[in-house]
């Protein structure tokens, strides 16, 4: 292309712009401006205090030097904490799986009548909205410190997840099989037992293994507010400034979570 050529070419052929993500310019700049203002405002609300950050650095170095090397001397406490976490996780998973079946049926649009459906959905939404730690703190107030609060919390937590998945599964089950049994005159329970349950069982087992894994993780956390298990052990160590024991606990938690994740993944893959 020579210069003479270029000068004859219309401008539109010498410029190109990527079509913008939002075509309407008012909307586009409005969104940009809005986000910018929000960012400036949100950051301005932060109490940035360089003093505190520099103090924090010295405190951090004190904590880390106190934490190294991790101290496994009180391993019995550690093991007890873990066994309790495991017990909490197992019982909560079992209770959650059992209770989530009726709730899932209540929350399945194709099976439940509308008022029951709304009730079922409501239970699921509420149990999913609250972080297990909030639920735990309430249960601790109601039934006292210890594993009972943990089990109740994680049962509710399991219901929120398992019942939701299960309800979705029930809503998409093969209508043909249900119709076939209805047509043959089976009673309602019979329909559930022979047409619906066989279709949801494999899913329920997979969910159970998944949930056991996530309950084990969660039990480490709800313990922080006093609901038993390894979390309580960790919180106590932290409260007593036993940073080396706290680090030991944290390391073991990480190890257990990794192992449990690997096992759970493996089992779920092998059942397909």
């Amino acid at each position: 292309m020579t210069d003479a050529d270029a000068s004859r070419v219309p401008d539109s052929r010498r410029h190109w712009q990527k079509p913008p993500f939002i075509a309407n310019p008012w909307l586009r700049w409005g969104v940009v401006l809005g986000l910018l203002l929000y960012a400036v405002w949100a950051i301005s609300t932060l109490p940035f205090d360089l003093d505190r950050i520099s103090q924090g650095m010295t405190r951090a170095s004190r904590i880390f030097s106190g934490a190294f090397p991790p101290n496994f001397a009180r391993y019995e406490l550690l093991i007890d904490g873990f066994l309790e976490s495991l017990q909490i996780a197992i019982l909560a998973t079992l209770l959650g799986l059992i209770l989530s079946v009726p709730i899932a049926f209540m929350a399945a649009r194709n099976i439940a009548a509308t008022p029951i459906y709304l009730l079922g959905r409501g239970i699921i939404i509420v149990s999913r909205s609250f972080h297990p730690v909030i639920v735990a703190i309430l249960f601790v107030k109601a039934v006292g410190f210890g594993p009972v609060a943990g089990i109740l919390t994680l049962t509710l937590y399991s219901i929120g997840f398992v019942a939701k998945m299960l309800a979705e599964r029930i809503e998409e089950i093969d209508r043909g099989q249900v119709e076939a049994l209805r047509a043959s005159g089976s009673r309602y329970i019979g329909v559930l037992q022979f047409a619906v349950l066989p279709q949801i069982m494999p899913r329920q087992i997979g969910l159970g293994i998944y949930q056991l894994d996530s309950n084990l993780r969660a039990s480490a956390v709800v313990g922080i507010v006093g609901a038993g298990g390894i979390g309580s052990t960790l919180m106590n160590a932290f409260g007593r400034y036993d940073y080396d024991f706290a680090l030991a606990i944290t390391l073991v938690i990480i190890g257990v979570i990794l192992v449990s994740e690997a096992i759970s993944g493996r089992i779920r893959r092998s059942i397909g």
């Binding site: 270029a6 010498r14 712009q17 990527k18």
Partner: peptide, 13 residues
Amino acid sequence: LRKYPAEDIERAY
């Protein structure tokens, strides 16, 4: 920035 040189755009067209 997708700010291609004018002669490249022209050539592309």
